[in-house]
Amino acid sequence: MRVILRRLGVYAFTAWVTITVNFILPRLMPGNPFDQIAAKLTGVVTAQELQAIKIQLGGDINQPMIEQYWHYLNQLAHFNLGVSITLSSPVSTILAGQIWWTVGLIGVAAVLSFLIGTVLGVVFGWMRGSRADNVIPVATFLQSVPYYFLGTVLIMAFASHWHFFPLENAYDLSITPGWHWDFISSLLRHSELPILSIVLSSLAGWMLGMRNMMVTIAGEDFVLMAVAKGLPRRRVIWHAARSAILPSIANFTLAIGLLVSGSLLVEQIFNYPGVGNLILEAVGGEDYPLIQGIFLLITFTVLGASFLADILYYVLDPRIRTATAH
């Protein structure tokens, strides 16, 4: 337990650094968000309006730096990330609305891909040296195809040419969202191709990683002992798989961390809502509060995921548990 607390301390420090950099960075850039917005305003702008925008953006820019920083931390503690310039609503609300699309689509796809890939890896790892090894070149090929290419080809073939799947969007826009079957089925139909594309492109990585670990672990004495003990084959495989899966689990938690930033391509290609699309909009519109908000969200998911990896390793590997306890 003390170990986890110590790790938590390290992450808290990292989070503080991130937050501070997030505060300093925009202030070091030439020009400032306020000028950007002011330049965009048309018509007669009163001094009061300008002052209001300044406050909206996180305080009076003429305040001393330290006070601005304090104000910024205070706002952050209340999940107040400011107001988006382009979308004119609070950044926290926008993120809260969009994050579920990303988690729902890319999260589900990542979990599916990890599970299928790992199980296949265990099977092919156990069958090493047989004809099943022919799967390796195929997997390597799949792994080396860039995602945007695979995604585009899938859309062209299965959505544009053969119409097996809808072309774009998260649901049929003519249906009003709500808890009814029409909407839910439309939602599922629209998620099929994006999920398939993600699974196809990332499956091979999980599979090859797990297969290699299985081959390594299967050579260990304790697996030989499991055979010598007359255990049924599935138990022998389990002996090996339990140890072999550790690196894969660590990699998976790290992959979760990259989920938000990785969503950009998928959401662009399939014109799917989510944080990925938001990033593009925010950068395109020089929407500083939104960019800062997304930046924080991404760093916090990465931090959270690696913390999760630490905990999982600690829980799953008794050797680490002992080594860190002493």
Binding site: E220, D221, F222, L224, M225, A226, A228, G230, P318
Partner: peptide, 21 residues
């Protein structure tokens, strides 16, 4: 059926012969 009930084996390195997990 024969393994371990009738023939068992002890290896040189007990550390690697026991599942570390």
């Amino acid at each position: 059926a024969i393994r371990w009930s009738h023939i068992s084996i002890v290896l040189q390195s007990a550390l690697s012969a026991l599942n570390p997990m």
